[in-house]
Design a protein around this nucleic acid. Sequence first.
DNA 1: ATAGTTGCAAAAGCTTTGCAGTATG
DNA 2: CATACTGCAAAGCTTTTGCAACTAT
Lengths: 157, 157
Amino acid sequence: MLRDTETIVKEVLNIFSKYLEKQSHRKTPERFAILEEIYRRNDHFDAEALYIHMKNCNYRVSRATVYNTLELLVNCDLVKKHQFGKNLAQYEKSYGYMQHDHVICAHCGKVVEFCDPRVQQIKNLVADLLNFEITHHSLNLYGICGSCVKAEEFSSN
Amino acid sequence: MLRDTETIVKEVLNIFSKYLEKQSHRKTPERFAILEEIYRRNDHFDAEALYIHMKNCNYRVSRATVYNTLELLVNCDLVKKHQFGKNLAQYEKSYGYMQHDHVICAHCGKVVEFCDPRVQQIKNLVADLLNFEITHHSLNLYGICGSCVKAEEFSSN
DNA sequence: ATAGTTGCAAAAGCTTTGCAGTATG
DNA sequence: CATACTGCAAAGCTTTTGCAACTAT
């Protein structure tokens, strides 16, 4: 049974609050507002989109604070940061979500998530063989999604 | 038996030449000089480092040409482009190399290569399940390498 | 009270683009 | 000889930084 958004928002605000306390960081309204906005939205987003969205909601935040807060949220594992081949960081909320990786359509930009236990096996083996303490990973598959393939076939006929 | 650098350089220059011809692109001395420099060097590099290196070797090239040529080389599979978590593209020569992935040390920046057949299995399964034509992928593991772990233990004692 | 945070704007860093000149096919 | 390519410099974009004002503790 999936918990509703309100419950999740409460939980993450609480987790963030405890994290800030532990790290002796200040609990500013901006930080909580940004976290809340992230968890009320879906999908992947970049820093600029989040900033614009905050502005549209009449929050008075700066880009600097958005970047600052995103970094904190990444550090306490409430948000994941990705790079899907472009020079642009993409973020996504991660609390309560299963660990997953991404397939990206090079044509339409669509991002689809998937999960494969073999990724963990690879991490374990590499950590062992190469003597690394692996903290996280990034696996992106790039290609063309079904609908874009069809569109291509259509236009070439 | 590994072929020597000269042989490999000749082969890639030849491959690039044929690629340019096929695509009706011009065979300029700058393009070949850049390819040759890449294949005479090792490890990963970024566009700026390559540009500086060309300058030091008294080639008269511009950044624009470096970026332009790198894109061509990526397109004909002679060079691979990576993003190791930073907003900075890293490149590496790929001809004659086994397909591999990377482990990156978050402390010292060291990049180690590894190869695991399960990556291909994952690609096949995802292509099938999600109906994608996968063209390439990027798998990076991030962590701390053995020597950096030791250094940490040392400094905390 | 004091120092961590904020907003703003400027700067930084990587990459792309516009343009006039050059050289390839 | 037409035009793709080049160098150079400027612009573009994302992200970071400096600083004065503010505010959480």
